[in-house]
């Protein structure tokens, strides 16, 4: 019975680990893939792998580190496999607002502040029109039509601006790396 008791403990421990980490892992992945369906798939991938491979008897910090490492690899695989990016996902823009050692339950406001800071740092390095179009589209979630009207340009030009702004910003991030 002693062994059975241990097993019951192991099950309970695994479920506790899941409870503690699922939100943080989902946020971590979401910050890097930017959409919920893919973030859910990758989060599921991390925990399904944990079912198979994670040793719940390890100390808590090692368990966290293991889960975040698997998550980081999953994100890198995602960008490499589907978007053919050679070596990415380790510390891109999103990396700038993650603590070096991810915390289990980071304070949501602190997280958001870090994200906002990283984005602001990027935007100030862009020409003003570029920064504006990214801010209006991605941060303020305005439609292309609304964005065009705010910028006083045509619908088509707003799309061109958005494209060029992303290209320039991606080049900046790339040279930082």
């Amino acid at each position: 019975m002693a062994r059975a008791d241990r097993s019951a403990n192991a099950i309970a421990r695994f479920e506790a680990i899941y409870e503690q980490h699922v939100t943080a892992i989902h946020r971590f992945v979401y910050a890097r893939v930017g959409n919920r369906p893919d973030a859910e798939d990758l989060t599921a991938l991390v925990f399904m792998r944990a079912v198979e491979q994670l040793d719940v008897d390890r100390p808590a910090p090692q368990i966290s580190a293991w889960l975040f490492r698997v998550a980081q690899n999953a994100v890198a695989d995602y960008w490499r496999a589907f978007y053919r990016l050679p070596q990415v996902g380790v510390d891109h823009v999103a990396g700038a607002w993650e603590p070096a050692v991810p915390q289990v339950s980071p304070h949501a406001d602190a997280d958001a502040d870090r994200a906002a800071t990283a984005v602001r740092r990027l935007l100030v390095r862009l020409p003003e029109q570029y920064a504006r179009v990214l801010e209006l589209r991605f941060l303020n979630r305005l439609s292309v039509a609304e964005t065009a009207s705010r910028l006083g340009v045509s619908h088509g030009n707003a799309k061109v601006l958005q494209y060029r702004a992303l290209r320039r910003a991606a080049a900046l991030v790339d040279t930082d790396g």
Partner: peptide, 27 residues
């Protein structure tokens, strides 16, 4: 365009008012 796509994804996540909070049903 891969790097642009990745940046767009990250900016979009940063601008999401829900901050990547997982869905309860998903959990």
């Amino acid at each position: 365009e891969g790097p642009m796509a990745q940046l767009a994804a990250e900016l979009s996540a940063a601008g999401d008012p829900h901050k990547g909070e997982p869905d309860a049903a998903f959990i």
